[in-house]
Structure formats: structure tokens, C-alpha cells
């Protein structure tokens, strides 16, 4: 017992903190990075990691088996859908001629 929390609740809280870190990094990336493609990296990756950590935390707290199974399905579908969406956005941007930012365009904003 730490601060009145059981061991499982402590682990779940730590996982949620990790999830929050990745989600915050995703938001910071989207705001700070210079162009569409670099922002894709931030939103696509940190989101997948943040979501899966949160799902594991929820599964620990869920208590009944069916909810855990549903959360596992959520994680599986997110792991497929997130990069697919990232790729679709990147491909669409490339095909419609969005320029790729490189270092010679000056320092990032």
C-alpha cells in the first residue's frame, strides 16, 4: 500500500503517467515541428505508444475478463489503424505536392 493504493493501482498510475508523457510529447511535436511530414512523426508515433500504455493501465484496473479482451482489441486495431492513417496522410500530402522541409529553409519556428 502506497498512498492508500494497491500494488496494481500503483502500476496502473505509473503506466498512465507514461501514457501522459507520450501524449504530451505528441502535442509538443505537432506544435513545434516545422512542416506537415515532421508533424506526422510526432502525432503518429507518440500517440500509438501513449494509447497502448493507457490501455494496459485500464486493463489492469478493469477487473473482468471481457473488458480486458475488448481493450486488447482496441489496442490491436489502433496498432493497425494509426500507422495506416499516418501513411495515408503522408501519401496524400506527397501526391498533392506539399514541400518537404529541410534544414536549408532556415531554423525551425
Amino acid at each position: 500500500m502506497i498512498f492508500g493504493l494497491s500494488a496494481i493501482e500503483v502500476v496502473a498510475t505509473l503506466l498512465l503517467a507514461g501514457s501522459l508523457f507520450f501524449c504530451l510529447a505528441a502535442v509538443t511535436g505537432v506544435l513545434r515541428l516545422p512542416d506537415f511530414y515532421t508533424r506526422l512523426h510526432a502525432s503518429g508515433k507518440c500517440d500509438t505508444a501513449g494509447l497502448s500504455l493507457a490501455l494496459v493501465a485500464f486493463a489492469l484496473l478493469a477487473g473482468d475478463a471481457l473488458t480486458v479482451v475488448k481493450l486488447a482489441f482496441l489496442g490491436f486495431f489502433a496498432a493497425i489503424a494509426n500507422p495506416t492513417a499516418t501513411h495515408a496522410l503522408g501519401q496524400a500530402a506527397r501526391r498533392s505536392g506539399v514541400p518537404v522541409w529541410t534544414a536549408r529553409h532556415g531554423p525551425p519556428r
Binding site: A25, Y37, T38, H41, A103, P108
Partner: peptide, 24 residues
């Protein structure tokens, strides 16, 4: 790899110098 990726992108993004050299 996904977690390594997320962590690396996070450190790059949170670095005040924003050390990126993007390209295709």
C-alpha cells in the same frame, strides 16, 4: 521498436534545440 520510436521522437521534440534534419 514502437516504444523506442516514441521515446526517440519525444526526446527530439522536447529538446530545446529541436535537432532534426528531415528529408526523404
Amino acid at each position: 521498436e514502437i516504444f523506442v520510436a516514441a521515446f526517440r521522437v519525444a526526446t527530439v521534440v522536447l529538446d530545446p534545440r529541436l535537432p532534426i534534419r528531415p528529408g526523404t
